[in-house]
Nucleic acid binder design. Sequence first.
DNA 1: ACGCAAATTTCGGCTAGGCTAAAATCCATC
DNA 2: GATGGATTTTAGCCTAGCCGAAATTTGCGT
Lengths: 225, 225
Amino acid sequence: MTLEVSPAIQDYAKAIYSLELRCDGGAVTTNALAERLGVSAASASSMVKRLDGIGLVEHVPYKGVVLTDRGMKVALEVLRHHRLLERYLAEELGVPWDRVHDEAEVLEHVLSDELEDLIAAKLGHPTIDPHGDPIPTAELEIVERATVGMDRLEIGDIGRFVRVSDSDPEMLRYLSARGIAPGDDFEVLDKQPFGGPVFARFGECPDVHPLGGRLAAAMRVEVGA
Amino acid sequence: MTLEVSPAIQDYAKAIYSLELRCDGGAVTTNALAERLGVSAASASSMVKRLDGIGLVEHVPYKGVVLTDRGMKVALEVLRHHRLLERYLAEELGVPWDRVHDEAEVLEHVLSDELEDLIAAKLGHPTIDPHGDPIPTAELEIVERATVGMDRLEIGDIGRFVRVSDSDPEMLRYLSARGIAPGDDFEVLDKQPFGGPVFARFGECPDVHPLGGRLAAAMRVEVGA
DNA sequence: ACGCAAATTTCGGCTAGGCTAAAATCCATC
DNA sequence: GATGGATTTTAGCCTAGCCGAAATTTGCGT
């Protein structure tokens, strides 16, 4: 049945998974998928039909797709590969934080189960990757923590900076250069009105950083003591 | 010009390189190439034409192919990836000796230059892989040592077991299980006539091993004190 | 020197995955 | 309830690699 899961199919499954998370509960549209993967809407449409044919997604024409259980397994397997590799590359090989995503993006498709196990063991079976994203377990269970973007915060909010999108190298370099990393506790000291930037302090460092626009939205945090 | 070197092309370049080594100096035939890569002669023929078109090989129809300088660079780049990865997998991740080849076979095509450098540095810029094969330098220079198969040896010959084909897992398991590894010094104690097996002792271990057939031919040695 | 077997190339066809352009469908607005 | 713009799907086409079958070339043995 499922004996042919090409890299392209893995990429589609992964993209559908992450888009399902965003647009909570809803079906993923062809357009969103196409944009995410950098292909034309026509290409996405025909691939979606194929994925439905092999039972990885449920496709309602003109409505969108939802992953089936089997499709979810494919997505989580690739996600586990990706995030384990990110962690491994950062920790064992010293690949810079803002580069691990691109490296993992290609390696994830050719990682054997055996190598996956060896890497996980060597890392001590980690549960989050260098961006703070959770790594699915070997049994493909994953806990997505509820987070909000820093753009939603108000003056006085405190909490923990949990994760940041791994796909924008420039953002990662920016944060990295300022010593801001997932896991840091923070405090919002000021905020400009009308969707303006928030001013926050991270970890032990007394510096106050202005965070606005796409950056603040990409920085996901858990609010509270 | 060369901006498209697909995995398939890399595999062809690598195969042509190693066949050129064997059939010393001569052009590589389409059939040999097809057999090596496990594709039909028709497929190999058409790919050879493509490779000639993009300048990686010189193809004389019905005669065979020879790598151009650019083709050689492609082959050595992939070979460096392959052997560095074998070394890395064996040393850092504990992948069994007989499995590293297959893992490296897929990873070699997706290894970025940056990762290549990091891996080489971590290993201390090694010059041979776990099978005793030389690793091309970053500048793609390689020294192929002159070796003979153990099947050519006579009683009383001594020397060093240098390398063994990396592509037969069963052979590797067999040698591994008996504690025989590249780098071992050996002594030929007996030999049966008419192409029969040689009996040899390796390293410190007093055991005498009978080695015949394809195994003896695959075991390459340097003869002499 | 000639013919035949083996090697090689050519030919037509297949799948995966992508594209553009055109047709179909959906939905918000009037 | 119609209609126009946006979205989605279909249709036709392309390239990379692979295949088997048929045509071609080579070169060995006599």
